[in-house]
Nucleic acid binder design. Structure first.
Lengths: 245, 245
DNA sequence: CATGGAACATAACATAAGTTATTGAACTTG
DNA sequence: CAAGTTCAATAACTTATGTTATGTTCCATG
């Protein structure tokens, strides 16, 4: 269950005490939600910070006429919204993709962290900066990358993020996104997503079937997507990308 | 010169003391830079937080083959990078568009703020959350809006941001972006940007000539761009969008 | 005040990606 | 296990946007 801890340790070294507070917080107020449900809706006043313990979710925005854009994905170990305590009104919605288990983190918890756990505070700060960097990279993808590159890039990003959370095995991972989800995230039509995935398959860059993704060579996929991992900032001093564990 | 103060007051009410610290900080280490120059480059270690006192700048990313995406604009009163003290390496570059005057804000200044000026700290936190929201909205634009909508949307956003900083007069503002800049920001080709601007002109939504933009009816332009200002969170309790001054 | 270079405008043509439609496979669910 | 539903695959056709090219306007500069 330590996806959050696992991820944060890519950036700071946590003490046993740090890990303990995090585990305690993650066990506090736990809820389960079915797939394809909204956790918070645009326009609502946000009330709490959610930590995803299991399952996938996403942030999305919608235009009046129904056009929908997924603006980011939440994977296990991700924290949903640190903006909660400042902004008055959600400018986007958060919805589940699969069934999801979330922990509600209280305001007091964050007070405690800032007061007594500087390493965790730094790590949270880092997490939110990386999220901004990811958002910028999506802007880049949507603006400049072709459908093929964009899809390859997105798959690389998800794979690496899962890897950081300890959710990959060898060169594979679970992959619950439908082609329709991928369309909403990449700004492509469903049909073109399908075509693009076929292309990636026939280039032997991915094996995607059922809800499982295999990446025979991450390097080649990264190449295809013009993927530069620098924006994920997985680089604590003295630790390297490939150091597994 | 109080563009920053003016903007922040859209969110928190600042005391005279608050304003004083901000002015002092803004006068500390001031530099001038010519147009079309890099302030920081991707790959460098960021060193300081820059406050734009005058002029326009942008964040941008580039692919190996030269494709370039502007991922955000900095207008007077904007703060360039709060990530400075955490991340090791810039994942994007920052460059000037016009000549620019910037103040270097020191690390100590931020220490002072967090320790003794909670309202300013809140306002800075707010500023960075709004920046994230803007980035999400750009993702939406690039993924779902047509060229016409996207351009209208961008112009609305810039106009409103300038208005918050006190940089518009009636329904007009300075507009130093070239069509090439607009192309890099919207992910369109230069030719199509030109076409799109013609369309906006003939719909009488904008007058754009020289380096000056006039928006005859912001409402109509907002409509054309499916623009919902909620993501700018210009909504301190008891203050409204249209309350000028 | 002549010259050169940005920035802007426009046209003709090319193409990546969107749209609509049909079919089949893979599941839920009664 | 039949029947409905979602998801995926593919084809035929359309369109928004990209590309290449050329000319024009507007300034800065010698």
């Amino acid at each position: 269950m330590g996806h959050l801890v696992r991820k944060l340790e890519h950036f700071v070294r946590l003490s046993p005490a740090d890990r303990a507070v995090l585990s305690r917080a993650a066990a506090e107020r736990v809820r389960n939600l079915g797939p394809r449900l909204d956790i918070v809706r645009e326009g609502e006043r946000p009330k709490s910070v959610n930590l995803i313990l299991a399952g996938w979710a996403c942030r999305y925005k919608q235009l009046e006429d129904g056009r929908r854009q997924i603006v980011s994905f939440f994977l296990p170990g991700d924290i949903c919204d640190l903006n909660v305590f400042i902004l008055r009104e959600m400018d986007h919605s958060i919805g589940t993709i699969t069934s999801v288990t979330i922990a509600d983190l209280s305001r007091e918890f964050f007070g405690e962290i800032t007061a007594g756990y500087p390493r965790i505070a730094t790590a949270f700060w880092w997490e939110s900066l990386v999220n901004s960097a990811i958002q910028r990279e999506w802007t880049m993808s949507l603006g400049q990358r072709t459908a093929f590159e964009r899809m390859a890039h997105l798959l690389c990003e998800i794979f690496l993020r899962l890897q950081m959370a300890g959710l990959t095995h060898d060169n594979g991972c679970e992959f619950p996104l439908t082609q329709s989800d991928l369309a909403d995230a990449t700004g492509l039509s469903k049909v073109h997503v399908n075509r693009t995935l076929q292309e990636l398959r026939s280039a032997e860059l991915i094996v995607l079937k059922g809800k499982s993704l295999t990446v025979p060579s991450l390097d080649r996929l990264m190449n295809a997507g013009l993927f530069n991992p620098n924006y994920l900032h997985m680089d604590r001093e003295g630790r390297h990308l490939d150091s597994n564990e």
